[in-house]
Design a protein around this nucleic acid. Structure first.
Lengths: 215, 215
DNA sequence: CTTGGTTTGTGAAACCTTTCACAAGGGCGG
DNA sequence: CCGCCCTTGTGAAAGGTTTCACAAACCAAG
């Protein structure tokens, strides 16, 4: 058990947890690895292997206790607590995030928002007062945000990420289309919509090449 | 050469292309695999291996012609043309996408937008008229959209994705926090912000466990 | 208590991706 | 034309992830 856990495993654990919470709400007592596997497109063996990295949670012949596994996965994923988010950049994406209730519902609270635009600073967006980026460090420290979100133009994304790291966040989620390298052990994950679209573009073109020229 | 190309390879190709375009704008003539590798966090060997799946683009001793490789990658990724997008769901994320100039700038044009909300239907958002979802099939067919974007609530995401598939799109980008399985050979890629945050939550908790209890 | 049906946990095998290391090729100065 | 230096393209090795397959364990019924 244990060792270094791959991103794909962690990703699947989140998906299992989602399904488990649905099952819990529906009043299910036990669930098998094959039931758990279906919605995430995994196999039952994969579910068992994923869980086995962290311990032994099931009963042979019976499956997993829904409630028990929910608690275990919340513990593993760090979701038995809530996290505070500092958002930098209240443009289109930033605003969409502030208005997205799904975050708070899952334990991710945006507790501070920053922008350079003086016209925005001081106003309230979905109830949260926008602060000037110049106050980033003290405000992040004061409100104890653990996660920084970069929703700025590409040009300043790296700089802002570094500033968030210095301000003390433990992880960063980046929406700018640029690959940021982790600084000071602060992991950075990038959500890059254009990259996803380009991936789809490749797949569609590949099909064309395959069926088109292969005839 | 060729065969099945992995997602990670395609992803990196996009990143190489980005850097190459920057280099082209800056007037560079040639680039080496190691220069190309740096911004995407890859190694020079990986760059060469990635490219080798599609052919032989470099000159030994010299590197790759920037312009030549830009054209080659655009061809490979299907980016020497532009793509038409049909957006379903003009809520917060949908609106942010409509306003995001970065899409059109990179050849992804949103040509149709749909919503169920009658208050929104008929209005214009960033210049685009919102259509009722009931018109999805004919409108998508008429405007020839190749990519569908699902930006609806989770509950209807699967249904909308299926409808987009039937309407004739070749690929789907999904923003709802649900794993959708590809239907009819239409690939679906999901951008799941909560999943990313949970991944970061895991990493932060892991560090805590490692340093905290390992003492 | 024993038998039978079921499902976990897990080594081993298969598969896939990344890294290594070097021969082959190309340009340039002399 | 020659020799030197540089960088590609690529088999082979290493490393990682997924799938397989089965013994061990559990429950329920008789």
């Amino acid at each position: 058990m244990s060792g270094r856990i791959s991103d794909s495993t962690v990703r699947r654990l989140s998906l299992y947890l989602r399904m488990l919470r649905d099952l819990e709400r529906a009043g299910a007592e036990f669930v098998s690895s094959s039931q758990l596997a279906e919605p995430s497109g995994a196999t039952s063996a994969q579910v068992r292997k994923d869980l086995s990295h962290f311990g032994s949670f099931g009963k042979r012949g019976r499956g997993y206790s829904v409630e028990g596994l929910v608690r275990a996965l919340e513990e593993i994923l760090g979701l038995s607590r809530s996290w505070r988010i500092a958002l930098v950049g209240v443009g289109k994406i930033g605003t969409a995030l502030l208005g997205y209730g799904g975050l708070a519902a899952r334990g991710f609270d945006v507790v501070a928002a920053f922008d350079v635009d003086e016209a925005k600073v001081g106003t309230r967006v979905y109830g949260l007062r926008i602060r000037p980026v110049t106050d980033l460090r003290p405000v992040v420290a004061a409100c104890g945000a653990e996660i920084g979100v970069v929703a700025t133009p590409t040009e300043v994304a790296a700089e802002i990420a570094a500033a968030l790291g210095r301000a003390g966040v433990g992880a960063i989620l980046n929406f700018a289309p640029i690959e940021l390298s982790e600084v000071n052990g602060v992991p950075i994950r990038t959500v890059d919509i254009v990259l996803e679209l380009e991936g789809l573009s490749y797949l569609m073109s590949e099909v064309g090449r395959r069926t088109g020229s292969g005839a």
